[in-house]
Design a binder for these strands. Structure first.
Lengths: 237, 237
DNA sequence: GCCAAAAACTGACTTAAGTCAAAGGAATCA
DNA sequence: TGATTCCTTTGACTTAAGTCAGTTTTTGGC
């Protein structure tokens, strides 16, 4: 396949996927053309930093493929993982409205493909069509609720409960939750999961062991099989 | 003063204050008239529940005076305080866009005055004037960032650090942070602060003691005087 | 397929903070 | 004013989870 062929295919794929993104699903053809004209598809290798905490803000991203970690380094030098981004989710969109620089680091955890949309392009688009902000606000509202939920959990639960909850969420996004033995493949290193759950890898490891000894899960390398869904759910309370 | 006089004064006060609220600050006279026509001013006594977790959603509120606690009861029966609302902040606005019932309990901690705006009224208004949603999205973006920040702190810091941070935030909203000895009056019972900081009142009490023994603060009943601002700031890192 | 580096795990120890129980202090209402 | 109730503090105890150090396992490059 020659390079121009490859490129045109990529553009088609990008247009197709953008259509699936809730924010753009109901735009007119004209509006949609504008979006695709300013959107850029970019591919990154594993462990690539997309932007750093404090970098000049240029625009936001939508993840198409792979996994992206959003994290900060706390004052005592530890990494705090704020989000683990999965495909068809936007990230770094808050500064669009809030101003300021990129508020955290962003690093790929696998080979990833993202769509980049520049701040200027997007804001001028939203100005012409303020209804788009209505759709965007729904996404923000959803995330506000999720974050509130996360804080609630965080403040009152132990690591094993947070881990149980994380596993449940993962098998749901993997769509294996209806199987007899739901399973998941960790697309994220365990120390990242630990930082995401607000703990350290040693403690996480011990809690994986606990769940395994109680025959609630079975760990085979990066694959985790849920043996006792009801008890896992009970733990995630 | 007779009742009709009092009422008209109240309406004037309400119009005046609504104008200060960022969401409405740049509306046209016509738009603003519509908002004031659907907004209701309500006064509540101390400890009054405004709505309960799960109640049918009817609309959102803007606090004019007093303090309101937004909380949930966790599965193990503990109270988790999600927000402590201060004047000129909106609450229960997320379900406007997300749907569903009221997602938490809301209770006054002092005598409070709120503005209630019904869901239907507000949504029809926003439909006529989608630019309003642009202003609203900025508020949401701000809160998203704050919540993210809170999660980051929560996951890595000890109670004494969270307490220091809370005190700093309070003296800032009380505008005494430029004084030689900044101070604040707790408008919130200590067990509520504890639940807000994700701990229990005993632990909070011990941490207040620690700060006092180290001569960083001085506690006189509900009044707290900051003796050593730099060290408090260092703790809040 | 082998080796070095990174990631994950284990054990021993320490500590922040939760629990329970009881006492002291403050607020409220008759 | 006094009394009841609620809020706050204190002490003794327990435990989840962090730290440090060392080992094992996995991964990725050559």
């Amino acid at each position: 396949m020659n390079s121009s062929n490859k490129e045109s295919l990529e553009i088609e794929a990008k247009k197709e996927t953008l259509r699936k993104f809730p924010l753009f699903s109901e735009l007119s053809i004209e509006q949609f053309r504008k979006i695709t004209s300013i959107a850029k598809v970019v591919k990154f290798k594993k462990n690539h930093f997309i932007f750093f905490d404090g970098d000049l803000y240029k625009g936001f991203y939508i993840l198409l493929k792979g996994t992206v970690k959003i994290s900060k380094i706390t004052n005592d030098g530890k990494e705090s993982v704020l989000h683990i981004i999965k495909p068809l989710n936007a990230f770094a969109d808050v500064p669009l409205f809030e101003g300021g620089n990129y508020p955290a680091n962003s690093q790929t955890l696998e080979e990833s493909i993202v769509i980049f949309i520049s701040k200027e392009g997007f804001l001028s688009l939203i100005k012409e069509d303020p209804e788009m902000s209505l759709r965007m606000i729904c996404g923000f509202a959803k995330r506000l609720r999720e974050l509130t939920y996360k804080i609630e959990k965080f403040s009152s639960k132990e690591v094993i409960n947070r881990l149980a909850e994380y596993l449940l969420k993962e098998i749901k996004t993997n769509n294996t939750d209806k199987l007899d033995e739901p399973f998941l493949r960790l697309s994220v290193p365990k120390n990242t999961i630990a930082a995401y759950l607000g703990t350290v890898s040693e403690t996480l490891s011990r809690n994986f062991n606990k769940l395994q000894k109680d025959e609630i899960i079975k760990v085979k390398g990066k694959t985790i099989i849920i043996l006792d869904y009801p008890r896992l759910k009970k733990l995630a309370v």
